[in-house]
Design a protein around this nucleic acid. Structure first.
Length: 472
RNA sequence: GCUCCCAUCGUCUAGAGGCCUAGGACACAGCCCUCUCAAGGCUGGUACAAGGGUUCGAAUCCCUUUGGGAGCGCCA
């Protein structure tokens, strides 16, 4: 039997990290077992579903690389099929029309709550209340009145529900449109889903779905209800931290594999391993190993993982993400070789691609201002001599590569008796405008000789211009 | 209120009765390395929610309490 999993988001809000994690688990499980991963958009709520949210889901899944083997399917395009099943339920007496008004239902709920009971439909129409003219009825599923439903869950084990706790849920609204719990059942059956992996907020819905599945004579899928993700404060995930669109992470300079790595470790582990490639995840992940308890979202660890993945990624891959980040800063370049060289030089010192871009501007455009603190400390009269000498020494370097550059700096240090830092740091400020850059030899190599010498001259001029001001 | 779920460092987790004076990771502090920033290495502190059982022995099994979460819609 081939494994078939699905991710079934509803386009009513943003695709946030909670949704992404259940998608990831479903995807990994399918990949691991050579199965099929299905994407199904649950858009039956026409009021709240939006085109934009659907697009975000699609874009997000694509960015993350969670490609669907089948779909995307849209529930709104399956209305005929739902109608067909509803009619069949009606015909075979497994569902009935209910004419109770919203007011009646509200009153019923209020009454039940006052009596400290669980609000549930009392079955007034179940045994055939006469049709009310002018009232379009809803359709309710006839839930079994007694017995126990056992949800066999791969994560939680067997969870028991008494049918007496359940009621006859609405499967079609008065306008004829089918409702969520019903559509899920029909879809999972039609799409032959073998493993339903979803948030554990759905655990309570499962017995109803099982009852409907059984009424349809369908084979039950394996259920796996994964725990929720909480905010860093342990409270429900809110906009403030993780409940933003996943695409926000792309904008903020996160690598998709880093986000996925972070998410896969929430509720799951493989020994002491923290860093996983996508391949390793698919190799090791198993749904039965997932924890039962909710976990809090930790932005610091995500940031750390992003840095670790940046360090491990190929410069070619990083260049591809660095380019749009530079564009955001107004730096447009098609020099792929330089992008790759910069990414290679920076990949050990950037927590995000955005940060990498911010620290790499000087590679692509002139330095017109110096960081005040760095300049005050390093662009001094003493440094001027070193920079002056450096200009000559670097001009004399035969081959412009980091080894030769390093050799020239070393030689100058030895000759002048100045510590390497006394030479390298002023040089760094001269070429980058700040006190921070990749190792100076690498920085110069990437920057090129011409640009280096130009900036050296400019820094010397700057010192000369600043001197009288400082002195006077 | 009712039903269901959950409970190890601040956080993510290891732990499926003795290997646990509870291991790893993030964060934090100190040290080392060092041309800056990082990365890396080393060191340090902090956890089995509480109470009862079961057992020679419990973080691990059972019960209760407490705390958190979810569901109870003509939302998904």
């Amino acid at each position: 039997m081939t494994i078939r999993t699905r991710f079934a988001p509803s386009p009513t809000g943003m695709l946030h990290i909670g949704g992404v994690r259940t998608a990831l688990f479903s995807w990994l499980y399918a990949r691991r077992h050579n199965g099929t991963f299905i994407l199904r958009v649950e858009d039956t709520d026409r009021e709240r579903s939006t085109e934009a949210a659907t697009q975000v889901i699609l874009d997000g899944m694509q960015w993350l690389g969670l490609a669907a083997d089948e779909g995307p399917f849209y529930q709104t395009r399956r209305m005929d099929r739902y109608r067909e099943v509803i009619d069949e339920f009606l015909r075979t007496d497994r569902a009935y029309h209910c004419y109770c008004s919203k007011e009646e239902l509200d009153a019923m709920r209020t009454r039940q709550q006052a009596a400290k009971q669980k609000p549930r439909y009392d079955g007034t129409c179940r045994h055939g209340r006469e049709a009310r003219p002018g009232v379009s009825p809803v359709v309710r599923f006839k839930n079994p009145l007694d017995g126990t439903v056992v949800v066999e869950d791969a994560i939680h084990g067997n969870v028991l529900f008494e049918n007496t706790e359940l009621d006859d849920l609405i499967i079609a609204r008065s306008d004829g449109s089918p409702t969520y719990n019903f559509c899920v059942v029909v879809d999972d059956m039609d799409m032959k889903v073998t493993h339903v992996i979803r948030g554990d907020d759905h655990l309570n819905n499962t017995p109803r779905q099982i009852n409907m599945l059984e009424a349809l004579g369908a084979k039950l899928p394996v259920y796996a209800h994964v725990p929720m993700i909480l905010g860093p404060d342990g409270a429900k995930l809110s906009k403030r931290h993780g409940a933003v669109s996943v695409l926000q992470y792309r904008e903020d300079g996160y690598l998709p594999e880093a986000l996925l790595n972070y998410l896969v470790r929430l509720g799951w582990s493989h020994g002491d391993q923290e860093i996983f490639s996508i391949e390793e995840m698919t190799q090791f992940f198993d749904i039965v190993d997932v924890n039962k308890s909710a976990s809090a979202f930790n932005p610091d660890k995500l940031l750390w993982l992003n840095q670790q993945h940046i360090m491990r990624a190929s410069p070619q891959r990083l260049a591809q993400f660095l380019k749009p980040q530079l564009a955001v800063l107004g730096i447009h370049t098609d020099d792929e070789a330089k992008l790759i060289a910069v990414a290679r030089a920076q990949q050990e010192r950037a927590k995000t691609l955005k940060e990498m871009a911010e620290n790499s501007g000087f590679f692509f455009r002139d330095v017109d201002t110096y960081d005040a603190k760095a300049a005050q400390k390093n662009l001094t009269a003493d440094a001027r001599k070193a920079l002056q000498a450096l200009h000559g020494n670097l001009q004399a370097v035969a081959v412009w590569d980091k080894e030769s550059i390093h050799g020239a700096l070393q030689a100058q240090s030895t000759e002048s008796g100045l510590a390497l830092g006394k030479i390298a740091q002023p040089l760094r400020v001269a070429v980058s405008g700040t006190g921070v850059s990749p190792p100076i030899d690498i920085t110069l190599e990437v920057l090129g000789r011409g640009e280096t010498l130009k900036r050296l001259v400019r820094a010397i001029e700057w010192i000369d211009a600043a001197k009288p001001a400082t002195a006077g």
